[in-house]
């Protein structure tokens, strides 16, 4: 009796879903779209989020805001550091996904994403000392300005699938904001894998909510949402869409970050400074009577 070859093993394919409130739901609309590699080969189906998914994500982010903004900055930094550790542990998986997406030198890009998380994690308990101050005033008062998180931030992530996403999300959450992110439409798979990293790294559910799908479709709903406090349009390349979002955001005076194309200092790819941290902080100034 001759040995028969075992049949070729079928790969276990992952179902790519959204990340809302710490869970991985399918899109409420039930829609999906085909994701292809840079060479045009089929990779997977990803969920195409609808406005109702955006609404649910904002509700989840709002629910998470109290706990996350109330956590100590040190604690938030530790959790970001933990995310960096988990991301490092999946280096090979991210590198493979980035290679499919056509990223040059994918291993270096994953390292850069880890480094960026660590950079922002380090800022968690130091930013208040830089952006805040104790102000000299006349009279028996102690006067301090302290930076506080803005609230729920809607983020349209740049098209760079991993480093771009990490570079816009990390500075938003490390200061205590919660966010709803629209990931790159072209290459959403690293974003979904990042969601798995977030889900396994002590980050409370709802602090980061990741939607995959068309930014053109979802961003205006987030921009107009009255329970969203700030808007990051870094990933919006269409000027018409950006202007429409800014107009919608004016309705409840959202903070809007929309880097000018020529401004290198505002670009996510530049060496990170504190600009992205302070963009979503609101400075509160307090007068406190001192003992007389």
């Amino acid at each position: 009796m001759s040995r028969t070859e075992s049949p070729a093993r079928l790969a276990v394919r992952k179902t790519y879903k959204l990340y809302i409130g710490g869970a991985f739901p399918r899109s409420e609309s039930g829609r999906s779209y085909a994701v292809t590699s840079s060479k045009g080969e089929f990779l997977a189906n990803a969920s195409r989020a609808s406005r109702k998914d955006a609404r649910d994500a904002v509700a989840a982010a709002r629910k998470a805001f109290g706990g996350w903004s109330g956590a100590t900055p040190y604690n938030r930094g530790q959790i970001l550091y933990r995310i960096a550790e988990m991301l490092e542990g999946r280096r090979a998986q991210f590198a493979a996904e980035l290679a499919d997406a056509g990223t040059k030198r994918p291993g270096d890009v994953v390292d850069a994403a880890v480094d960026r998380l660590v950079w922002y994690a380090g800022w968690s308990d130091k930013i208040a000392a830089v952006a805040g101050s104790a102000n000299p005033v006349a009279g028996p008062y102690f006067n301090i300005s302290s930076p506080e998180p803005t609230g729920v931030v809607a983020v349209v992530a740049p098209d760079d699938p991993l480093l771009g996403l990490v570079s816009v999300v990390a500075p938003v959450i490390v200061t205590g904001n919660t966010c709803v992110v629209v990931a790159s439409e072209r290459a959403p798979l690293p974003a979904v894998t990042l969601a798995e990293v977030l889900a396994t790294s002590d980050l409370p559910g709802g602090v980061v909510n990741i939607l995959t799908g068309s930014a053109k479709e979802i961003a205006p709903w987030l921009a107009g949402h009255m329970d969203v406090n700030a808007l990051d349009l870094t990933g919006v390349s269409d000027p018409g869409l950006a202007v429409a979002c800014e107009e919608a955001a004016a309705e409840n005076l959202k903070r809007v970050l929309r880097p000018a194309p020529a401004d290198r200092a505002d670009d996510w790819a530049a060496d990170p400074g504190t600009r992205r941290l302070t963009a979503f902080l609101e400075t509160k100034t307090v007068w406190h009577p001192t003992g007389i």
Partner: peptide, 8 residues
């Protein structure tokens, strides 16, 4: 035509 928030 836009989502309302409880703050208002």
């Amino acid at each position: 035509g836009r989502y309302a928030g409880p703050d208002y």
